[in-house]
Design a protein around this nucleic acid. Sequence first.
DNA 1: ATGGTCGTTTGACGA
Length: 259
Amino acid sequence: MRIVTWNVNSLNARIDRTVEWLELFEPDVVCLQETKLADDAFPTQTFADAGYESVHHGQGQWNGVAILSKVGLEDTRAGFDDGGEPDVDARIVWATCGGVRIASCYVPNGRSLDDDHYQYKLAWLDRLAADLDQNTSPTDDLCIVGDYNIAPDDRDVHDPKVLVGATHGSQPERDRLQALLDWGLDDVFRLHHEEAGLYSWWDYRGGNFHKRIGMRIDLLLTSASVTKRAQRVLVERNARKGKDPSDHAPVLVDLAGQA
DNA sequence: ATGGTCGTTTGACGA
């Protein structure tokens, strides 16, 4: 079973490239972020024609997340179920696909350490942890993926200095990611690749992709039973090349066993 | 040293 996470940076702008990539890589489960669509504008039929059931949680213009599946799409849920107020943004959607509980997450960017949006980012990560603890168990088959907007450690950025005094590498952010790992999830890409310099996002500006200036911020967090099944994990960086790419590349994992 | 590009959009903002 092949699961992929991909921040497409507008599905309207990226629909042709997205469908072509799905035809090429034939993933079973696809978690999309930054669709930037209202629910009634989501191309459900386009994905159905490509063989996917889908669930979308969008708001139009900004944010928006989706899960596509060829292996069933059950118990879908938009947003948090932690007893709190509804999230102000459309940033997480859930489904059970092929026996694995999946979440597609678009963690707030944070903007800067002194911005209210940074406090929202930290609170959002706390809510994700609470939601997981209330509604799932580390012994479940879990794959909580998406654009976390956190570089887990200094290997995950071209120059650690760019994270000093900035979002994406601050200790409070990394502490919250670590809390998810301590609860019972693994950064499965990192378990398969120890080296520095493997990124999933490159700024559009300055030819950063070709200069290999980027960050690894798109993560596949898997519970132990899923980690154990992971045969291959990779960033499909070819998807960042060519005409009109997203600024993120897809990250995929292949799991042993039937869906 | 600065800012460099895309997306939402048609004037700035967000990333």
